[in-house]
């Protein structure tokens, strides 16, 4: 009995001492960590908008924007947006001024293949975005150069920038965003384009009586095996749900996104 009591006592004392030591360390390090994170964020943002003297956080629908201010006046907007790349989402930081001109674009984080996907971190490549405005297309191989061998990552980065610009435009600059409202679509056949894994996917969408009745893929350059996985199920689901934003086909995510975007492009106005 005494032996068991001794075991318990020693183990308990060691655990208490451990918890105490950790509580002390945590108390000492937490403020440092929090302050550092805050400072890093502000430093990064000061890089994008050097004139700003203050940054305000604004959260709308779970999206975090930062408003760059100078003397109390808004001079720019910053946000991080993502798009699907090869190894997962690619996150880009984008700063836009009040006129809709891009001030800075930077890679936030990504999980692309080292040596292949990380070419997007190249400063020259990123510099292409610097003279763009909210009215530009910002699309790969249209006004942004592709880096051959890293197409998927480049497209993801470009789309992420486009997403950020659109979000900022809609939130602060009164940009009209394309809206999805089937009730407003007149009967007829519409063509739309989206980008998949291998390039553009073009679809023809037929609407009658305010409902999507058929979706036909008329052009694509996807890998056949992957295209098979998505080509029927995605249009079927869209027609079923009468909504473009359906679940992606597993194993063919990029192709699915391409088809969905093309349908959206065809009908959104």
């Amino acid at each position: 009995m005494a032996y068991i009591a001794r075991l318990t006592f020693v183990l308990a004392m060691i655990c208490i001492a451990a918890a105490g030591a950790l509580a002390l360390t945590e108390g000492a390090t937490t403020p440092v960590i929090e302050q550092r994170i805050q400072e890093e964020l502000f430093e990064a943002m000061a890089d994008y908008v050097p004139e700003a003297d203050n940054f305000e956080e604004k959260v709308v629908n779970d999206k975090t924007f930062y408003i760059a201010e100078k003397g109390g006046e808004e001079i720019g907007y910053i946000m991080t947006a993502s798009a699907a790349g090869y190894g997962g989402p690619v996150y880009m930081n984008v700063a836009v001024d009040t006129e809709g001109e891009i001030l800075a674009v930077d890679v936030d984080r990504h999980t692309e293949t080292p040596g292949i996907g990380d070419v997007i971190e190249d400063e020259e490549w990123l510099a292409q975005f610097d003279d763009k405005t909210i009215d530009d297309e910002i699309a790969l191989e249209v006004d942004i150069d592709n880096i051959s061998g890293s197409t998927v990552t480049c497209r993801a980065a470009t789309n992420a920038v486009r997403n950020a610009v659109d979000e900022i435009g809609a939130e602060f600059l009164g940009l009209e965003v394309a809206e999805w409202d089937l009730a407003d679509v007149e009967d007829g056949t519409y063509e739309g384009t989206g980008s998949g894994f291998g390039g553009d996917i073009v679809v023809e969408v037929t609407v009658s009586g305010g409902e999507i009745t058929s979706i036909e893929i008329i052009e694509h350059s996807e890998t056949p095996e992957y295209f098979e996985l998505a080509k029927d199920i995605i249009p079927e689901m869209i027609i079923d749900e009468q909504d473009w934003d359906v679940d992606e086909a597993s194993g063919a995510t990029m192709t699915s996104i391409g088809i969905k975007d093309a349908v959206f492009d065809a009908l959104a106005q």
Partner: peptide, 22 residues
């Protein structure tokens, strides 16, 4: 006992690094 002692020091390293060598 060894595991608790080792884990304690590991956590201390973890937190200290996070604070000073992010």
């Amino acid at each position: 006992c060894f595991i608790v002692i080792i884990a304690t020091f590991v956590t201390i390293v973890d937190m200290t690094m996070n604070a000073f060598l992010p």
